[in-house]
Computed example of a mutant assay.
Amino acid sequence: MADPRELERTARTIGPGGWAVESERPIATLLGSCVAVCLWDTGSRIGGMNHFMLPRSDGRHARPDIDTLLCGDFAMETLLNGMLGRGGRRSRLQAKVFGGGAVVAGLTHVHIGEQNATFARDWLTRENIPLVASDLLGRWSRKVVFDPCTGDAFCRRGEEVTSSLIHAEQRYERTLQKPRQTNIELF
């Protein structure tokens, strides 16, 4: 088994709305209420990870020009298509899911972490992709490192969340509370 610290050192890091499919290089992310899904193809030995902040794009939350991949419904389809595009087969996929923490006291009333976790599990069930491991919910942040060569995922829980993660989640929540403005450009 690889050393998680070495994997983290060489990992490609993704943030909210990010995703990656790799065959050799590890993938890492830092989570609060967001969820990351790791997909691994047991036959071709490729793996991918995404990182989403909201379960669905329902027209109220997502701005298609900016926030599309922040939503689980788009993030999951993008990751799955990325895996299939690199030679993965749906019948050989398995998943590991992380995150959904209630790390920011002011955000607990919306239970966004719980909604994200439920969405991820439901999506995998609907797509017949086995969920082989998970670390979801709780009051902590998580650092996740995924090794696409082996399908191993390492999750380190953080009791104290970094201030940048808290500020990013609070900033995003404020954008959700603002009424959407539709910009129309006539030409």
Rank of each mutant, 00 (worst) to 15 (best):
A20T: 09
E22F: 15
E24H: 06
E24D: 01
R25L: 15
P26C: 10
P26G: 12
T29E: 04
L31C: 11
G32S: 10
G32E: 06
S33N: 07
C34S: 05
C34N: 00
C34V: 02
V35N: 12
V37P: 00
C38P: 01
L39W: 02
W40Q: 03
W40G: 02
D41T: 14
T42N: 07
G43P: 03
G43N: 07
G43V: 12
S44T: 14
S44V: 13
I46N: 05
I46V: 13
M49E: 11
M49R: 10
M49Q: 14
H51S: 07
M53Y: 10
M53C: 11
M53I: 04
L54N: 00
P55V: 01
P55Y: 07
R56N: 05
S57Y: 00
R60K: 03
H61T: 02
A62T: 01
R63W: 01
P64Y: 06
D65N: 12
D65Y: 08
D67A: 13
D67T: 06
T68A: 15
T68M: 12
C71N: 07
G72E: 04
D73P: 02
D73S: 06
F74T: 07
A75P: 01
A75L: 02
E77Q: 10
T78P: 00
L79N: 14
L79H: 10
L80S: 06
L80M: 11
G82V: 01
G82M: 04
G85L: 09
G85Q: 08
G85V: 12
G87D: 04
G88V: 14
G88D: 08
G88P: 03
R89Y: 10
R89W: 11
R90M: 08
S91P: 01
L93C: 07
Q94A: 08
A95W: 10
K96Q: 15
F98Y: 14
F98E: 13
F98M: 10
F98D: 09
G99H: 07
G99W: 05
G99T: 06
G100R: 03
G101T: 13
A102Q: 15
A102V: 11
V104D: 13
A105P: 15
A105W: 08
G106M: 13
G106K: 14
G106F: 05
L107Q: 09
T108F: 08
T108P: 12
V110G: 06
G113P: 00
G113Y: 00
G113D: 00
G113E: 00
E114N: 14
E114Y: 14
N116I: 08
A117S: 10
A117F: 03
F119T: 03
F119H: 05
A120V: 07
R121I: 08
D122F: 09
D122I: 04
D122G: 00
D122K: 13
W123Y: 13
W123R: 09
L124C: 04
E127D: 03
N128Q: 08
P130W: 11
L131N: 05
V132L: 15
V132M: 13
V132T: 15
